[in-house]
Computed example of a mutant assay.
Amino acid sequence: MATPALIDSHCHIVFRNFEEDLDEVAARWREAGVQSLLHACVEPGEIPAIRALADQFPEMRYSVGVHPLDTEHWREDTLEVLRQAAQADDRVVAIGELGLDLFRDKNLDEQLAVLRPQLDLAVELDLPVIIHCRDAADPMLKELRRRQEQGCCPRGVMHCWGGTPEEMHQFLELGFFISFSGTVTFPKATPTHDCARQVPQDRFLVETDCPFLAPVPRRGKRNEPAFVASVAARVAELREQPLERVAEDTTANARRLFGLP
């Protein structure tokens, strides 16, 4: 049976731990059926290297943005840098990875000051956002609901989902997609398992977030795009559906959200 086509909707292969064997990593993701991948950006200094990777791998698209744990990279000209990078290359299909993270940092006001102009930029450029939200569902929902009331809330995805089903349904009500990573394969990730069972078939994606969060049975090792197949397989188990169905749904959803090939 042919390997079902998959899309890794969130990865980071610009990191140094891929320098030695990137061609082999690419061969493995192609063998695993990964037809497209979206490389997330965490700060503007990465953009030239990510662009070079997109030159090297035609199946790659990417985002531009500033991660909530990288607020120190925000400068007076950062918004213009992101705008120009997005407008200069049609392979930029999203703004992000942006969001809020109150697990590691407590500087909510500083994170909001970096988040808000990026959300505005996404609306301006009509691009979806990739949202990182950790221990911060309440302030994130508050920000997005305010924007929805004002007619300026972008579309997008809650990446590397780790919240509760109740939180998930609130983000779904705002029009967001939910993306499952290797955490869905962890035995004790019960809320994530419940979310994978409940999410509508037209509103979920799969991702690796590599090199982080390698799925079972590779937990603790370097993650890579090929391993998105393990994520999809576990989601299929939880949904009691064939892997082919989950691959078909998530591929169609990623293409619809990001305009992927």
Score class of each variant (00 low, 15 high):
A2I: 12
C11L: 15
I13T: 05
I13V: 15
V14M: 11
F15P: 03
E19F: 12
E20R: 14
D21Y: 00
L22M: 05
D23C: 02
A26D: 10
A27W: 09
R30E: 13
A40I: 11
E46Q: 15
P48C: 09
R51D: 07
R51A: 14
E59V: 07
M60P: 01
M60R: 03
Y62I: 10
Y62G: 03
V64Y: 03
V66F: 08
H67A: 11
L69D: 15
D70N: 13
R75K: 13
T78L: 14
E80C: 09
A85D: 05
D90Y: 07
A94S: 09
I95C: 10
I95P: 05
L98M: 10
G99Q: 10
G99S: 09
L100I: 11
D101S: 08
L108W: 07
E110D: 11
Q111V: 06
A113V: 12
V114E: 03
R116Q: 12
R116N: 14
Q118R: 12
L121E: 07
L121K: 00
V123M: 13
V123K: 09
L125A: 02
D126A: 13
P128Y: 00
I130S: 13
D135N: 15
D138P: 03
P139C: 07
P139M: 07
P139L: 10
M140P: 01
M140E: 05
L141A: 06
K142F: 12
R145L: 12
R145Q: 11
R146K: 10
E149N: 14
C152H: 13
P154Y: 02
R155P: 10
M158S: 08
H159Y: 09
C160E: 00
C160D: 05
W161C: 04
G162C: 15
P165C: 03
E166L: 10
E166C: 04
E166A: 15
E167A: 14
M168N: 07
H169N: 14
Q170N: 09
Q170T: 10
F171G: 02
E173S: 14
G175F: 06
F177Y: 15
F180S: 00
G182K: 00
V184D: 02
K188V: 04
K188F: 06
A189P: 02
P191E: 04
C195T: 03
A196R: 08
R197T: 08
D209F: 07
D209I: 02
L213V: 13
L213I: 11
A214G: 15
R218H: 11
R218Q: 12
R218T: 10
R219H: 03
R219I: 04
R219F: 03
K221N: 14
R222K: 10
R222E: 11
R234P: 00
A236D: 06
E237W: 02
V246C: 02
A247N: 05
E248T: 10
T250Q: 09
T251F: 07
A254I: 08
F258M: 09
L260G: 03
L260P: 01
P261W: 05
